[in-house]
Amino acid sequence: MKGLVLKDLMCLRKQLIIFGYVVVGVLVLSVMFVLSARFGNIAMANQAMVATEDLSASDIADLSTNVLILFMLLPLATVGDFANVFTEDGKAGFFNVSSILPVSIKNRVLAKYVTIFAMFGIGAFIDIIIAFVLSMLTDIISFTDFLGIITSATSVMAIYSALVIVFCFLFGYGKEDYARLISPFLMLVTAISLNFSNIRKSITAGDIELINRCMNFIKHKSYVLLLIAVFVMVVSYFVSVRIAERKRGIV
């Protein structure tokens, strides 16, 4: 099985190279952010806020923090798209090889999930290091809040990947784009359906309370998303195994 994980990582080689570039980019941005937060515009905005009690200056600092968080999540997003493995396997006709290996169908499916965890592990690890350094050097956001954001982002990406894998197994080779489209759509529909009344109230009232609540949820209740991600992953694995066994490993 380990060999199949290595093969999947080889398939994602290009993505890993892009990941490297993105990490470098995020590191540069982080350094710039730290410098700005200490000596530049963000620091000045903070000083202005303190001096004039002008709330708009505080918004600037918040805004820049949010932008940085978005940039920080880029490494995760880069490694999160797993459908490329299916595309590469389909192009090569790898089924001819995998079906003759001394690896059961269950383990062949499991190898895909292990690869996802390996990729997310790399992405999350890098993000945590950046978050740790940033929280040490600036006092705009705490490490705990950063950790919450990273956990939430990893969980959302894990849910997305879990759905993508199931759909890739279900649709078969060459239909990865459908899996890529249907998965986020399904996630969005579920999220909207579960919060429909809150969204309606917020739109009717015309306030940004919902966004603030969302941000708070992401920062402080990320464990809920993590639990959902674990549950979806487990269900996705068993469904994928069932589909793969029905198709005798041909996806």
Partner: peptide, 8 residues
């Protein structure tokens, strides 16, 4: 048919 990925 071979079945190995072309980049391998």
């Amino acid at each position: 048919e071979m079945g190995f990925h072309e980049f391998m």
